[in-house]
Design a protein around this nucleic acid. Structure first.
Lengths: 110, 110
DNA sequence: TCCAATGTTCGAGTATCGTCGAACCAACGG
DNA sequence: CCGTTGGTTCGACGATACTCGAACATTGGA
């Protein structure tokens, strides 16, 4: 036990969306892998991190999920060894109405 | 004669918006300086490049305007020694309805 | 208790981005 | 014809981003 520095049992950093610069939100969406994750999240409700297999390593996937989370776009629930991620649709829609829809409306493989 | 053919020396690269990956559009908007430019363009109609003074050199400004143009977000008209830039609102609205509004609705200095 | 499964973090490599000054070019006005 | 004006392009630099393998932490089960 007595190990600090590892965030396994610490609070996840999930900022309020309004405190995230809009450029950070846009930058979070401006990546192919993350956009695929967002598309998948927009389909249903909650997904385990491991669900996302988009041709990147799990280290990279973890990185992208962190970027999305710290941009205020997703919320993560810890359950056992798994982490369940979901899109913060309502907040997103309230602060940037139309943004998510516009992004998702774009052709998937432009 | 046509001012397009040989008015300058080079055609400006202004792609069709639908041929630009959505990630490129988002990336173009995910920069503070460019967002300021877009905000200014959204106010009125046409601005000379030199109008934009956002604390960057003219080389940097030229770079950012190029990024916006090649992302399909702006159109540029050459007139004499000046270049007039305007936002491609209609096309943008048609392809990504709500996107521009959502971005512009964001607080200017988040 | 030991091991497998799920994620995170670290370190490093590569690539891309934002920025600038300097050089350049094309167009206009004496 | 020459200089000025408005912009672009060319290196170069530092910073950031994406990617991976390896090592680690936490949980849960055999």
């Amino acid at each position: 036990m007595s190990n600090m520095g590892y965030a396994g049992h610490m609070e996840l950093h999930e900022p309020e969306l309004r405190e995230v610069p809009v450029t950070a939100v846009l930058a979070a969406l401006a990546d192919d892998v993350r956009l695929q994750i967002v598309r998948a999240l927009a389909e249903g409700g909650e997904y385990a991190c491991g669900t996302f297999e988009f041709g990147v390593s799990k280290a990279t996937r973890s990185h992208h999920l962190k970027v999305l989370r710290e941009a205020g776009l997703t919320r993560t629930r810890v359950a056992g060894t798994s982490r369940y991620v979901r899109l913060r649709r309502e907040e997103l829609e309230r602060l940037y109405p139309g943004l998510l829809g516009a992004v998702l409306a774009a052709p998937a493989r432009a």
